[in-house]
Nucleic acid binder design. Structure first.
Lengths: 176, 176
DNA sequence: GGATGAACCTGGCACAGTGGAATGTCAAGC
DNA sequence: GCTTGACATTCCACTGTGCCAGGTTCATCC
């Protein structure tokens, strides 16, 4: 009967374990905490909150400043979350437009493709630097959450793999 | 005016450069060629074909065996594809449910989490093996397409990074 | 040759997810 | 008081997903 929570809704419930939050705050929290491997938009947050409120998994509190509408998790919400996290997680999906471009690379002048690649490489370097800084901060502050470190380490490993791939590309591709 | 093709439609046009194909063939081709980094479903293929036919980017030919409906790319279609591939590709999105589970790992008994992790590790080993086999085949048959090798190499690098992450996890997580 | 079943091929439908536009609310500074 | 901009919510058009119904061809077995 607890109609199978989706991962986005479940994550919101996860964050609400820390106390009531508004849709805005939830969206911001999600962006920083799980945004690197689970994208969601504000629209989606509000929709999930509304439908979870209907289902009794969260409760809307009094509107505060600026129409801010806090939501609190209910007992039913905790139960639904517990049920969700106990289920086998599905496998990941990646959508990588740059690989499409590479895949159809024969239809593009090599310099153009090279320009795209170098722009993306720079962006990934940036992201790696960001992750490394996060890790330094976490290690310095000592109170490192192991679970957060695990996901952060995934980000590091991923970005390093991507950069390594960029570096091998010239040998793999025509016109390299 | 050529109303900004989406990546899925553009990919279909890309495949149609090789000659007329039916929706079925396009879906199958897409699955094997770009399926690892750009998912699409048959329904979507038929819908995009219909709308591209409306827009004059493809032309439906005579129905053949088994009601098979071939589509051919038109001059306008080639132009639209050229325009699409010349645009800066967006950045990738990853949706990784397992990382959500890890992220909320405190709400799960360690053995349960460990079980999920080992199941997923096995699946990734399988995928890596598959990619390695593909590469062997491509190298053996000699006629390796550089662009295809580049995307294949990405898959290899990604899976190796993921496996490495799995192996480091015990040191990173509580109860490891 | 008729029945059976499997693979092939197209399409419809309902619903979930996405991202950006539009709108509204409030605090702070000039 | 007026503007500016951050905060907060909602709407909408489009894209993506999964499931299913229906028709076609082919091989196989009796």
């Amino acid at each position: 009967m607890t109609s199978a929570l989706n991962a986005t809704a479940a994550s919101l419930l996860g964050f609400l374990h820390h106390g009531p939050m508004s849709g805005w705050d939830l969206a911001a929290t999600a962006e920083t905490v799980i945004g690197d491997f689970w994208s969601l938009t504000r629209s989606q947050v509000y929709r999930e909150l509304a439908s979870m409120a209907d289902a009794g998994l969260v409760e809307a509190g009094e509107r505060g400043r600026r129409d801010r509408q806090p939501y609190a998790i209910t007992a039913a919400g905790r139960a639904a979350f517990a049920e969700w996290i106990d289920r086998e997680p599905g496998s990941e999906t990646i959508r990588f437009p740059l690989l499409l471009t590479v895949s159809f690379g024969r239809h593009l002048p090599p310099e153009r493709l090279a320009a795209f690649l170098s722009a993306h490489r720079a962006a990934h370097e940036q992201r790696l630097a960001g992750y490394e800084q996060q890790r330094s901060l976490a290690e310095a502050s000592g109170g490192a959450d192991g679970y957060a470190m695990a996901t952060l380490d995934f980000g590091l490993a991923y970005e390093r793999a991507v950069l390594g791939w960029f570096d091998r590309l010239p040998e793999l591709m025509p016109g390299g």
